[in-house]
Design a binder for these strands. Structure first.
Lengths: 138, 138
DNA sequence: CACTTGACTGAGAGTAACTATCAGGTTGTA
DNA sequence: TACAACCTGATAGTTACTCTCAGTCAAGTG
């Protein structure tokens, strides 16, 4: 059993966000002790894990709530939940592609600047060294 | 030369967002025609491209503005800009790692549900088929 | 010439998902 | 008795849009 602080550390989510998510109904099975303190079980951590996963792939909280509600509803919703996971995976793969593309842009820029710097150092004695430097290049 | 609409289509950024970015000072060199209509040059598209890139990697608009201002300032800021690109790349690579991890979670879930579905179908005649189904599994 | 289209402007409200701050309350331990 | 760690509710702030209204201007078409 874990306190909210321990969960925050373990799962790398702020306490604040965990409470926010709890309030949003994302952790319906977290028990409280006699002092009303949340006691996360290992199974509850799984819920945190999947919520964190869905969020980090950009799933809206509304949609997460729907998924959570399907989980609560029980086994009859398994095919639907399976489909959500597949769709989410698809989305994540697209994000991967997008990220790769943007990394290519950054690689290009890196080289661009690298060359500018190299030429500038080599030719700094040369009044013509500005010849390759576009003015106001991004 | 491109109108804002053409840029929006070409770069897959909404017109609204382009105007928002323009207002934020991200495209300082876009010319206007005699009717005050923005005319994006190919070089301006480069600015759109880098802004889009930085944004999609989570760079804040404030930080983007700083980068843009460095560009405007001219060649003396090249090393600083180079460093920003390197840092941004680092950030993007971290995001890549995070995404990979979350994809692993999703893969796990996919298999989890796949098995549930398979077993459920196979054993649906069997009153014991619930034995492997945790109640309220995420 | 009216009309539509596409561009522009500014102001202002709405949105998501936190994030932070305040204020106040309980409990267990040093 | 002070403190740390948990709780609550309310409220405000943040970011980066996103949307809506309201009004202007210029070019092209029937």
């Amino acid at each position: 059993m874990y306190t909210i602080k321990e969960v925050a550390e373990k799962m790398e989510v702020s306490e604040h966000t965990l409470r926010f998510w709890a309030k949003s109904g994302f952790f319906p099975f977290v028990k409280r002790n006699e002092n009303n303190i949340r006691q996360f079980s290992d199974n509850d951590l799984e819920w945190v894990r999947i919520v964190k996963c869905l969020r980090s792939v950009g799933t809206e909280n509304k949609a997460i709530k729907k998924y959570i509600d399907l989980c609560i509803k029980g086994d009859s919703t398994i095919p639907e939940r399976y489909q959500i996971i597949l769709d989410t995976k698809e989305k994540a793969l697209q994000q991967m592609e997008e990220l790769k593309q943007q990394l290519a842009v950054l690689d290009y820029k890196e080289n661009f600047y690298k060359n500018l710097i190299k030429n500038n150092l080599q030719d700094s004695w040369n009044p013509m060294n500005k010849i390759n430097l576009q003015d106001a290049a991004v």
